[in-house]
Simulated scan of single mutants.
Amino acid sequence: MIEVYSWPTPNGHKVHIMLEECRLPYRVIPVDIGAGDQFDPKFLSISPNNKIPAIIDPQGPDGRPMSLFESGAILLYLAGKTGQFLPTDTRGRYEVLQWLMFQMGGVGPMLGQAHHFRIYAPEKIEYAIDRYTNEAQRLYGVIDKRLAQSKYIAGDAYSIADMAIFPWLRSWKNQGVELADYGHLKGWFDELAARPAVKRAVEVLADHRRPLVDDKARENLFGGTQYKRH
């Protein structure tokens, strides 16, 4: 059984979705990022960047336990382990990989900054709010244009690229976006949200979720604790 060290965030849900879609048995170990669980030495031993999610697969590719951090790497690992949601042909594989990298390098970081400056920052900085809200809207436009041409993000088949992007768009209101303005994206979003595996995945640790705006959470996520050497 795969051990998943996680929290109900977009990056956590990416991996929850893949595990549910593949019907892999897994056990979730909550890592309360507001309380500072990400700095526990045991967690750092498998996720040295102190970020969730991370996994331990007791049956790694050589039959020995294997740990992994970084959600994109975990999605690729699980796709390789199960032979699902990542094409085997070279062209199809790279179609998926380019959109997975688009999420890892653009959607996640930029929408994360939009969340930070619009919601979590202790002072409202108009330049930063405008900068990242505009970038969020631009990225939604890129996705909408793509989905005007393609059933799914990377082509005709549902893939890990869809799983990676979808959870980040669930907080569209917090990003200063109106989902109805992106018709092709909204159709895709509603279809994915209705998938049974996705419904199960986004409920993982949902009862643990709370606003991360108290002083302790701010310190652990954005303050000096985050920048100490652990």
Rank of each mutant, 00 (worst) to 15 (best):
residue 102 F to D: 07
residue 49 N to G: 06
residue 23 R to C: 09
residue 83 G to L: 12
residue 167 P to N: 04
residue 99 W to E: 03
residue 27 R to V: 14
residue 71 S to K: 00
residue 72 G to A: 15
residue 9 T to Y: 00
residue 30 P to V: 11
residue 215 D to Q: 15
residue 41 P to D: 10
residue 89 D to T: 14
residue 35 A to L: 12
residue 229 R to H: 12
residue 159 S to Y: 05
residue 223 G to I: 11
residue 130 D to N: 15
residue 158 Y to R: 00
residue 77 Y to Q: 10
residue 78 L to V: 05
residue 82 T to D: 08
residue 38 Q to G: 11
residue 221 L to W: 08
residue 126 E to P: 09
residue 56 I to H: 08
residue 217 A to K: 02
residue 122 P to R: 09
residue 27 R to A: 13
residue 112 G to W: 03
residue 35 A to E: 13
residue 207 D to N: 14
residue 84 Q to K: 15
residue 115 H to V: 15
residue 69 F to H: 14
residue 54 A to H: 03
residue 200 R to P: 06
residue 31 V to P: 12
residue 6 S to Y: 01
residue 202 V to S: 10
residue 115 H to T: 14
residue 18 M to W: 00
residue 60 G to M: 00
residue 149 Q to F: 02
residue 107 V to P: 02
residue 81 K to G: 01
residue 201 A to S: 05
residue 145 K to M: 12
residue 113 Q to S: 02
residue 41 P to N: 12
residue 112 G to M: 05
residue 52 I to Y: 05
residue 191 E to D: 15
residue 16 H to C: 14
residue 43 F to G: 06
residue 214 D to M: 06
residue 226 Q to E: 10
residue 103 Q to C: 04
residue 24 L to N: 05
residue 224 G to Q: 13
residue 209 R to W: 11
residue 143 I to H: 00
residue 95 E to A: 15
residue 190 D to F: 08
residue 39 F to M: 12
residue 156 D to Q: 13
residue 163 M to V: 01
residue 25 P to T: 14
residue 211 P to G: 02
residue 212 L to I: 07
residue 71 S to C: 09
residue 16 H to S: 03
residue 80 G to A: 09
residue 135 E to Y: 00
residue 134 N to P: 05
residue 135 E to G: 07
residue 188 W to K: 08
residue 79 A to I: 07
residue 78 L to N: 11
residue 181 D to R: 15
residue 54 A to R: 00
residue 91 R to C: 08
residue 75 L to Q: 12
residue 71 S to A: 15
residue 62 D to A: 15
residue 11 N to T: 13
residue 204 V to Q: 06
residue 171 S to Q: 11
residue 75 L to I: 04
residue 129 I to D: 02
residue 223 G to L: 02
residue 43 F to K: 02
residue 87 P to W: 11
residue 82 T to F: 06
residue 102 F to I: 06
residue 146 R to A: 07
residue 98 Q to H: 13
residue 192 L to F: 09
residue 120 Y to R: 09
residue 179 L to R: 10
residue 57 D to N: 14
residue 180 A to T: 13
residue 210 R to Y: 05
residue 227 Y to W: 14
residue 120 Y to A: 15
residue 23 R to M: 10
residue 89 D to K: 13
residue 164 A to C: 00
residue 10 P to K: 02
residue 65 P to F: 09
residue 186 K to W: 03
residue 125 I to Q: 09
residue 68 L to E: 07
residue 21 E to M: 12
residue 95 E to P: 06
residue 161 A to Y: 11
residue 116 H to G: 00
residue 15 V to M: 08
residue 165 I to F: 02
residue 151 K to Q: 14
residue 217 A to M: 08
residue 47 S to P: 06
residue 174 N to K: 11
residue 34 G to R: 10
residue 58 P to Q: 09
residue 175 Q to C: 04
residue 45 S to N: 10
residue 166 F to S: 06
residue 140 Y to W: 13
residue 174 N to P: 01
residue 19 L to K: 13
residue 187 G to D: 02
residue 2 I to H: 04
residue 189 F to Y: 15
residue 137 Q to N: 15
residue 15 V to C: 02
residue 86 L to C: 07
residue 49 N to M: 12
residue 96 V to T: 11
residue 161 A to Q: 04
residue 154 A to V: 06
residue 128 A to Y: 03
residue 15 V to D: 01
residue 11 N to G: 02
residue 86 L to Q: 04
residue 100 L to R: 00
residue 24 L to W: 10
residue 16 H to W: 01
residue 113 Q to F: 05
residue 61 P to T: 04
residue 46 I to N: 05
residue 179 L to K: 06
